[in-house]
Computed example of a mutant assay.
Amino acid sequence: MRFSIIIPTLNRTTDLYNMLESLKNQTFTDFEVIIVDQNKTDILDSLIKPFESILDIKHVKTIAKGASNARNIGLSKSKGEIYTFPDDDCEYPNNFLEYINTYFIENVIDGIVVNTRDKNDGKPIANLSTSDVEIKRKNILKTVIEAGIFIKSSIAKGIVFDENLGVGATSGYCSDEGPDYVLRLLEKGAKLKFYPSFYMYHPNPIKIYNEKTSKRAYNYGKGRGYFLKKNNFGFFNIIYFLGLYLAGMLKSILFFDKNMFMYFFADLKEDMRDILNQNKKLLGLNFLLFVVGLSIPFSYAFNSICLGVLFLYSFNWFQKKL
């Protein structure tokens, strides 16, 4: 078996049907599909049944919560030479797996990560690198999205997803399980590359900024903070990601978009709150750099970032006192 396609699913029928249709239409057919069903009822039984005579499907039911938990269950059932983990609302172009298989044959590589694009407008759904690049620790958050991971089982054995991370995790840390998984593959010596020219389809979840997307940003920000803290990313990496959120807030001000502002603010607030709760030294270093920055001409942007950290720490402190 060449590919094991592990799909966690919850509360989706139409999207999963479309994904299975796209798999049915693949020009390369040496793969198994492992559907990890987290629904409380049997809503998928009749949906999956027509595909069982066409595709090699394992329908695994579980009451375990969280996408990462479901992926780990799928890994334990997998027999393929290459693992991949699309979401239940992804779709593959018809020749997608054929291209991926050819790439693995022609190149000495342990794994690749491909891009995800919205099917309606063709644009990437995440702000990742636009060029082919080797994945390293320093660029992992610009090159990895979990749905796009393809990794050889020979190097991935024994490595599982952190069940504290990902959509549906009981911890509330609803993001960055993919980068965390790949980071541990890199630590094991795996060689992976990001190829944005290879892509699958995935709906863009934040085309519209509203209360729902702000709540999503809040939970994803918690995941980002946990990921950075868990994996010991340094002060300047944290400041860099803080700067990205502040840039989004600035853009929202320029466009007079309150909902966009609240989206980036929710992400920023939860990200930094989670980091600062257990990193008092970071606060002290941040304040020192802010003071130094006052003496440096044209350092307004840098000082704004530092002030942002100080503000968020103060905000968190006052919340605890109330």
Rank of each mutant, 00 (worst) to 15 (best):
E81R: 14
E21F: 00
D87N: 15
V292G: 11
I149V: 15
G234L: 08
I54C: 05
L294S: 05
I206P: 00
A217H: 08
D37N: 10
I296G: 12
I296A: 11
K191V: 08
Y300S: 13
K320F: 04
V113K: 02
V108I: 13
N18W: 07
L282F: 15
I54W: 01
C174R: 07
T130N: 14
A247C: 11
K280W: 04
Y201Q: 03
N303C: 15
G223K: 02
K269V: 11
K207Q: 15
V114E: 01
G80R: 03
V114D: 00
T102C: 06
D42C: 06
Y103Q: 13
D110Q: 06
L289G: 00
K58A: 00
F255P: 00
D121V: 01
L288Q: 10
F194N: 02
L246K: 11
G189L: 04
T143Q: 02
Y201W: 10
L186R: 07
I100Q: 10
D257M: 08
A247S: 14
M19L: 15
N303Q: 14
L244T: 11
M262H: 08
E91K: 10
K215Q: 09
F194E: 01
E134L: 12
Y209D: 04
M1L: 11
T13Y: 03
V60S: 07
Y195Q: 06
K191I: 08
K142P: 00
D121M: 05
G158C: 05
I275C: 06
L242S: 14
E81I: 01
I208Q: 12
F150R: 03
F31M: 08
G284L: 14
S295A: 15
K49P: 03
N204I: 01
L47R: 04
S131N: 13
K79E: 13
V114K: 07
S22L: 02
E177I: 05
N231Q: 07
M19S: 09
T116D: 01
F28V: 02
E81A: 12
N277G: 04
G66K: 03
C90S: 14
